[in-house]
Amino acid sequence: MPDNFQRVSPLADIAIQGRFGADHGAPGVTLSVRHPVLIATVIARKGKAKALADALKSWRGATVQWAGAEQYFLLDKPFDEVRKKLEGLASCSDQSHGRVIIRIEGPKVRQVLCKGTPVDLHESGFEIGKSALTQMAHVGVHLTRVGRDAFELSVFRGFSESFWEWLTEKAEEFGYQVI
């Protein structure tokens, strides 16, 4: 579909750029909203888990995040292309508008996230590229480590405003920057 319509993020008026919270020193974390983004849920058809995993591994330009048993979030590819490419291997559903991805990065990132998730995010057991499904402040969160001190948090669109409020409040004590 030609993207000649303006996609409006639910955080467009919420995630305002600037420096917030404690203002001493460098910000503890930096927050940004990845928008617009292309996301598809892909779930292996019966008996195709291995074939799907292989197909995803070798797909250049696609970002693949584990999202449950035999299930992934596939980012950065248009949905029509995803469906065509994975025909017969997976059931695909477009979620590009249904989820909001917030990137959080910085030296205090784990101190912020531990206020929400019981998942142990220590780098010894949660390496870059690893994803987890968890809950933070009563909101389901799909979380992926994208760098040593960087995570992507993906939530249902409808919760994004509430989640953003919670997340930024938890970052206040370290000072945060929204970019």
Binding site: G68, A69, A132, L133, T134, Q135, G140
Partner: peptide, 9 residues
């Protein structure tokens, strides 16, 4: 047990 706040298995 449903892992309702996790992978939903």
């Amino acid at each position: 047990a449903h892992h309702s706040s996790g992978c939903r298995a």
